[in-house]
Structure formats: C-alpha cells, structure tokens
Simulated scan of single mutants.
Amino acid sequence: MSDTAAIPSAIPATLAPLTTVRDLIRWGASEFNRHGLVFGHGTDNALDEAFHLVLSSLKLPFDLPAVYLETHLAEDERATALNLLRQRVETRKPAPYLTGISYFCGLEFEVDERALVPRSPIGEMIEAQFQPWLPRDPETILDLCSGSGCIGIAAAFAFPEATVDLAEIDDGALDVMARNIIRHHVKDRVRPVVGDLFAPVGKKRYDLIVSNPPYVPTAEWAALAPEFQHEPKRALEAGADGMDIVERILNDAPTYLTDHGVLICEIGGSDDEFEARFPGIPVAWPEFDKGGDGVFVITREELSEWLRARKRRK
C-alpha cells in the first residue's frame, strides 16, 4: 500500500477554513514546525518545504505569480495537497522522496529511497564549470559513487563535448541513474559503469574525477534525524571516522587521472576527520555562495607527490 493510500483523504471540519493555496502553505509550515521536522533535502525551513509540497501536489510551477496563492482550490485539489503535507509529518520522509522529483543545477531528476537526494554543493562548481580549478575543459569525466547520476549528468550539460562515466555499485541506485540518463537524453555521452569504485573503468584515465562518496562516521550516522535515515545507509556511512572510502579514492585516483587531471571530492562536515587521517595533504577548499562546504580539490600531481611522501614516512 502506498503512503498516499495509507493516509485518509477525508478532511476534518477543523481544516475547513483552509481554502486557498496560501492557507495550505501556512498550515503545512506550522505543522512541520510543531512536529519538529528536519530539513536539508532541497529546502532549509518549514515554509519553503510546505510551499514546495503544495505546489508540487497541484502540478504548478514554483515561480507561480503571487496572485495565484489566493486562489480557492477544488475539493480534490485540497485533499491531495493536505495528504501530501500529512505524509511529510507522519513518515518523516524528505520531500523529494514524496514527490519523486529533485532539482539539481537547474535540472529535474527522478529520485527515490534507493539513492541520495541530490543536494551537493558541487552543483555550484558545475554551474561555474569548475573554475578556477580546471586548467582546461575536460574531455573525460568520472562521477564516482554516482547514485542518481545527478553530478555526472549535470557535468555533461556543463561540458557538452565531454564523455562522462557514472560509477556505482548499488543495483537500486543504478536503476534510478538509468532513468535519469534516459530522462535527460544523454545516453550518447553518459554511461553507467558498474562496480566498486575504480574497478569497472579498466585503464581509462580522466581529466576530472568528481565524487560525493560515503563519508559519515558510523556513530554520527546512527544519530541522524529520521529524514536522513530514509536515505540509503550504504551511500552515507563509511566507518569509524567516515574516511574509509575517501582513503581508497585518494590512494587510487592518480592511476585514473590524466597528467593534468583534477580530483574533486565532497566530505561534508567530516573535515576534522579528514585532516586527522590525512595530515598535510595539500588540498584546496572552495567557498560556496549558495551554502554548503566540505569539498576539496587536488591535482593529480599534488596527490601523487603527497602519496609518495606519505609512503616514505611509513
């Protein structure tokens, strides 16, 4: 039984005064705050979340002229919107899992609980074509731990002459990714490669490797809010300090980068764990205008030199 079917559509008399789009948004935001919901999957506050869900339920654009917020809804429209708002409260699922759609770099992606909700600050770097970090436009790009494919597909739009490989091991995420490749008509330049990290790419080398790998320490993952617990654990949790997958990426990336290649990797709030595990690594930390942090940049040359020095110290 779907979540929609599980929640009664009958509207209590106490909600009868809720007749306009604005009424439903205001009520939804109040309910979200009253129940202590947590945000961070496309919105960062109750009002924006309610706006997103109500407009989605009505199949209306998010840039709807303000005058339409005062329109009165048909009874079936009102019931649909209220049920979606209730699902958000009762299931604690992130809004994109309820609507089936998430937005990243101005593109619409299909998403469900088999893949992370797209929200990486790497999106801002893609919109800037990774400047000033790339010496030239990449011809080959690898999106490592690709999930829904949002980073790699968005990069394909940013660099229309590039070919992009999306590396992923999880069958469910691969199914979501495949739907997004078809949705965006990029099958001729974007391909999934199935396997563990670099294993499926063979001897291919890339001008750019970009990754949002699992990086959440185990104890921190266990304490996450219910909204984040709905996301696949495999895409989040990565050992006692969260750096298990990141270390594998750092060790192997030079083999798969071209001579002037660049590695860009997100580690979120695990920067302290990163610096403790990899002291002295010469990474750059981009600053973001739209929020977010915890993304590092390192060239193949810098990474190779650091790895050699690290090996000598051991």
Rank of each mutant, 00 (worst) to 15 (best):
V262D: 09
C145D: 04
I264K: 06
E237W: 09
I7D: 08
L58F: 07
H184Y: 02
V111Y: 01
D293R: 14
Y215Q: 07
W27C: 05
E70G: 08
F278S: 03
S56F: 04
D293T: 15
I264V: 08
M177H: 03
L174C: 03
S2N: 09
V89M: 14
I11Q: 01
D171A: 06
R114G: 01
L60C: 05
E220L: 04
V216F: 03
E77A: 12
S120P: 01
D3C: 05
E168Y: 08
V111G: 00
T80H: 15
A199G: 11
G106F: 02
L263S: 08
A167E: 07
D196G: 07
E287G: 12
Q87Y: 05
H184C: 12
E124W: 00
A66R: 14
V176S: 03
F278I: 10
I151L: 02
L116S: 00
A309N: 13
P254Y: 06
D76W: 01
L60V: 11
G123L: 00
A219C: 03
A16E: 05
Q229T: 09
G242K: 04
K233M: 13
H35S: 15
I209N: 03
D23W: 08
D137F: 13
E301D: 09
L84I: 14
P214C: 04
T258F: 13
L82K: 10
A154D: 08
W285P: 07
I169Y: 15
W27E: 12
G28C: 13
S270Q: 14
F288M: 02
P286F: 15
I153N: 10
G294C: 08
F32C: 01
I298R: 02
F288Q: 03
H52D: 05
I141A: 02
H184F: 03
P232Q: 13
I126W: 07
A46N: 08
H185V: 06
C105Q: 09
A238T: 13
E31D: 09
I249S: 12
G100S: 05
P121T: 00
L257R: 03
K93T: 15
L197F: 08
A223W: 02
A16D: 06
A235S: 13
E231D: 15
F51G: 10
E231T: 13
I298D: 00
D196T: 11
G292R: 00
T14G: 03
R191P: 07
R191S: 14
F288N: 03
L98H: 10
T163M: 03
E75D: 14
T163V: 08
T19S: 09
E90G: 10
Y103C: 01
V164Q: 10
V210L: 14
E273I: 03
D170H: 09
S2K: 04
D63C: 10
L257D: 15
A81I: 09
L303R: 12
K233V: 11
L224W: 13
G100E: 05
I281Q: 09
I11S: 01
A225N: 14
M1K: 10
C105I: 10
D170A: 04
V246S: 05
A79W: 01
T14C: 07
I182S: 12
A29C: 12
V210G: 07
S211I: 05
C150D: 02
I122F: 00
L69S: 01
L257E: 13
I267Q: 15
A74T: 02
E75I: 04
D241G: 12
D272I: 13
P8S: 10
P61Y: 04
G294P: 08
V190E: 05
Q129N: 01
L85K: 08
E90H: 10
K93E: 15
